[in-house]
């Protein structure tokens, strides 16, 4: 006959540094706790999440030595799980979830403006290449281009800032773009996303 060690003994062993004791405790109560959570949330993934969060709290409390053993390990863990289930429903109430149906998917109407990871990488690369190219421009053209493109200043503001007329600022911007194109062509650089 296999002797089953009491939860309280395993808890003590775990607190004393025996990680194996935790494994025994988790496996022993896995089904009870998971089934309890599942009976409330009716979703396998959410059950896994809450189960995980429950034991993270258990681990932290035990390691901090804040758990007082009264021979009630399982009811204590169940109480933590119960509180997390309540938190889950509260959170969902504050942020109602709309998942659409088979014939209507909300994501076909609402688009995410962000680029995907690959496009973002390409964009970052282009931005960094472009900043190197801008460094090649004559100082006066570079100044105007940076103010216009990166600082979003108007040509009036640029002219006030650089002490030249609006027409000169416009001309410098034009030459900056022409020169940039020349550098791009000369070096066969591809700047497209």
């Amino acid at each position: 006959m296999e002797l089953q060690m009491e939860d309280s003994v395993l808890v003590k062993q775990y607190v004393d540094g025996d990680e194996k004791a935790l494994e025994v405790l988790i496996n022993r109560h896995n089904q009870k706790i998971s089934s309890f959570i599942y009976s409330k949330v009716l979703d396998k993934d959410i059950t896994e999440d809450i189960f995980q969060d429950t034991f993270i709290k258990v681990i932290k409390t035990l390691k901090k030595g804040s758990y007082s053993e009264e021979g009630k390990f399982l009811p204590w863990v169940m109480r933590i799980a119960h509180n997390l289930i309540i938190d889950h429903f509260r959170k969902n109430k504050r942020m109602p979830k709309f998942e659409g149906s088979e014939d209507f998917n909300i994501f076909s109407v609402i688009k995410d403006d962000k680029l995907n990871a690959e496009k973002q990488l390409i964009k970052d690369q282009i931005d960094s290449d472009l900043s190197l190219l801008i460094e090649e421009l004559p100082e006066d053209q570079k100044k105007v281009l940076i103010m216009r493109i990166y600082k979003d200043m108007s040509f009036k503001e640029i002219s006030e800032n650089t002490g030249v007329s609006i027409n000169t600022a416009l001309g410098r911007m034009r030459y900056a773009l022409i020169n940039l194109r020349k550098i791009v062509d000369r070096n066969n650089i591809v700047l497209t996303n």
Partner: peptide
């Protein structure tokens, strides 16, 4: 609602690694 459920071995492994 009475269905028995068990958390996956991956979740348990995560918890044990977390604890360690």
């Amino acid at each position: 609602v009475c269905k028995l459920h068990k958390s996956s071995p991956e979740t348990i492994k995560f918890l044990l690694d977390y604890s360690k």
